[in-house]
Design a protein around this nucleic acid. Sequence first.
DNA 1: TCGCCATTTCTCTAATCTCCGATATATTAA
DNA 2: TTAATATATCGGAGATTAGAGAAATGGCGA
Lengths: 129, 129
Amino acid sequence: MAIQPIEPLVDLLKTLGHPARLRILALLRDGEMCVCQINSVIGLAASTVSEHLTELRRAGLLAERKDGRWVYYELKPKAGLQDLLAVLWPHLDQIQRVKEDIKAARIVRKTPLGVLCGWKKPQRLSIGG
Amino acid sequence: MAIQPIEPLVDLLKTLGHPARLRILALLRDGEMCVCQINSVIGLAASTVSEHLTELRRAGLLAERKDGRWVYYELKPKAGLQDLLAVLWPHLDQIQRVKEDIKAARIVRKTPLGVLCGWKKPQRLSIGG
DNA sequence: TCGCCATTTCTCTAATCTCCGATATATTAA
DNA sequence: TTAATATATCGGAGATTAGAGAAATGGCGA
């Protein structure tokens, strides 16, 4: 039980105190997602979502994994933060917007990334159809 | 299990994401305090402390009780917030600043309010001593 | 190499927050 | 009533934040 400064806890709570970031956390409960998948559910500019993800990672809540040109974010709270997230889930589960997001995410996860991102020339789906 | 909007939860977390407000919550764990007592521990302007207390009350964490010219604030989370506070206490207990505050509060609680507030003419302690 | 594209970083604007000191309100004592 | 006092509210200065779009970065495929 080490002695801690107050700032990290304050920063964590400040990070949690934003609707988009709470919604992102709720999404990632069902497994990792790449930025464009998260973005298509949250509906903010890609750069804004990226900034929120960076902040969530800095707060020690997420881990990132690069796969080609995509970056996948995963819920991975560092030691000592699991209890705070655990108490948050039941509250998030009661929120209408979160329920809708999770439902949308189920579809997004099944959609090929090329289709999701609206490529001009789909990569592997029928060429010159 | 009612359906909720996201804003109240966001507001609560935003309220918690401030060092002075966390410190105030930690102080009130040991029982109610009036504004001038809290202020003498926290060390911000009285008006600033009053504003923080108002915000904590709006978030549903505190109750107030007027006694003469003093206003006492008490920890009284409304239904559904106890679990969030409960998970917070162990984290606050590890914070150096919070430990110091609690120690200072023990002295403050024993000090007569007139002495604490530095009255020119003490009210009931020896008259014209 | 070149072009495309997902993501990040940068730049700027608008909005919000924090703090203080001044003022207002309300209570007590005389 | 008047003076003193605790707290709340107001107004403004300075800092921080959220958001979008532009530009930069880095991977992939041709």
